[in-house]
Design a protein around this nucleic acid. Structure first.
Lengths: 204, 204
DNA sequence: TACTTTTTATAACAACTGATTTAAAACGCA
DNA sequence: TGCGTTTTAAATCAGTTGTTATAAAAAGTA
């Protein structure tokens, strides 16, 4: 046959993720990638096509390891607990993100997706899946009474999605524990069943 | 004295805002700016300093006309109405944003602020002001009974700020009327006074 | 061992980047 | 009318951008 590849495509993609994640698409040059990957630019073009294709693969790779198993893992839990654990993990990750990289999907939603139809489709599809995960949790919780039905599952799932994105943006410039943990409290309260409402009057 | 300037600095700054707003910082070159402004690059450097300084001035200009009077205008109203009107306007603007430019401050929070201390300060300061506006509204509403006190004003102000940012990100890839107007409903419900809670069980 | 195919390394391509130099042009003030 | 000052225009700087051509190196198959 022919000469085999000297590098591991997954290892090299992981490096691409870190570069694009930290610096964004425009600010990362092919030479940046090549140096970090330990490859020549020719090898990158040979293996992936062009810069946009590397980013595409990197974003897929990121989504896979960021949302792939996680959603399934959380869905094992009780509905309300699943949602709360999901947000607690996001907040924790945002607070320990010393490099201020944020979420690569959100970054992509703002830098690349607005003027690239394909990325728009990719990003909105992932967001739709997260929203659907929230909605399934809420519907299950409403059925077993652990989540209130004052608002529709659809509306509340949207609220959770919006809050999630808001946290990821806010944490990028103001990664303050009090702020993030405080803003999520009223959102959790929104999920509470009706029976708990009266006992929830004090917040001191 | 000396030769007077041939261009109107405010008019030219407005053009810079539109360019940076639509394309972002990196993707907008000095030559892009010069062409759009009808100036030479030398004139830009003479008048503003360097590219970063142009962006700095443009962001200030944007913030001024986007948040300057608006907050004051809304604060004239009744507390709850002020908040609702604020969000309704944001949603309306997001839905009619055919160019998908989003909010320049949010864009800046993700592209520039993370690796530029000064912009981080500028962005977080504006966010703090928006948050303070929300808090003032909530505190006033809690005092006159038009807004519930199940959650603290601080926490709810944070929730509103997070929701605001979430809407601006979400609208960038999914500017859907149902989604945005739906996700805000539970947030408005969170603000309701205790007395209205029981009459709010149906959402059909 | 020779042939085929793919991956490498090196170099180069044209276009563009932010920024500056040079000199001409345009004003107000003396 | 000159003088001092600033803004213009045009060209240019060195460095970087994404991408590709060329040819050498490395493997399997015949």
């Amino acid at each position: 046959m022919a000469r085999p590849r000297e590098f591991d495509e997954e290892k090299v993609l992981q490096i691409a993720v870190e570069q694009f994640w930290e610096q964004g698409y425009d600010a990362t040059s092919i030479r940046d990638l090549a140096r970090a990957m330990g490859l020549t630019t020719a090898s990158i073009y040979n293996a992936f096509g062009d810069k946009r294709a590397v980013y595409r693969r990197a974003l897929d790779f990121y989504v896979e390891q960021s949302f792939g198993d996680r959603v399934g893992r959380f869905e094992q839990r009780q509905p309300l607990d699943a949602i709360q654990a999901f947000f607690n993990e996001i907040i924790e990750r945002s607070l320990s993100d010393t490099k201020r990289k944020g979420c690569m999907l959100v970054n992509s939603a703002l830098e690349v997706a607005p003027h690239d139809e394909e990325f728009q489709r990719v990003v909105s599809e992932v967001l739709r899946q997260v929203e659907a995960f929230f909605r399934r949790c809420i519907e299950a919780g409403q059925k077993d009474g652990s989540i209130g039905a004052r608002q529709s599952a659809t509306d509340m799932a949207g609220t959770l999605l919006g809050t999630l994105l808001g946290i990821r943006v806010l944490a990028r410039t103001r990664p303050e524990k009090n702020l993030l943990e405080g803003l999520i409290r009223p959102v959790f309260a929104m999920l509470e069943p009706e029976s708990k409402l009266q006992s929830d009057q004090s917040f001191a």
